[in-house]
């Protein structure tokens, strides 16, 4: 499924969607950046509540297809623009990490 498809199906908030056609092939949930660097795989959807600018670099390096901020968290000031500039898809959801991960698992 594409990131755009995921956004439409799960009614996700769009903070930045420069590459909506990217494929989502799996997922990783976590907030500790070194764990994400060590475990997330390319084309994963990354579910987190971490909203600072560093998530954009982590998404770039791990090549996840999107970041989804869960639990209604909004990106810190400037982070949405940063994501757009770096071609990183940044979405949001009011769901818990657990609930959203379960929904995504069912879609993949």
């Amino acid at each position: 499924m594409t990131v755009l498809g995921l956004k439409e199906t799960l009614n996700l908030t769009v903070f930045a969607l420069p590459q909506g056609e990217r494929q989502v092939r799996g997922g990783y949930a976590g907030d500790l950046l070194s764990w994400v660097m060590g475990k997330a795989e390319a084309d994963d959807a990354w579910l987190t509540i971490m909203s600072n600018p560093n998530i954009v670099a982590v998404a770039t390096l791990t090549e996840v297809s999107c970041i989804i901020l869960c639990e209604g968290v909004s990106p810190d000031a400037g982070v949405a623009a940063l994501a757009a500039g770096k071609e990183i898809n940044l979405l949001g959801s009011d769901s818990s990490v657990f609930a959203l991960a379960a929904q995504i698992t069912n879609l993949l």
Partner: peptide, 15 residues
């Protein structure tokens, strides 16, 4: 609080 400090940096570099 920024998500750093998991103590996994040097182990990741090694791996």
């Amino acid at each position: 609080a920024l998500g750093f400090g998991a103590g996994m940096g040097l182990p990741n570099m090694k791996r």
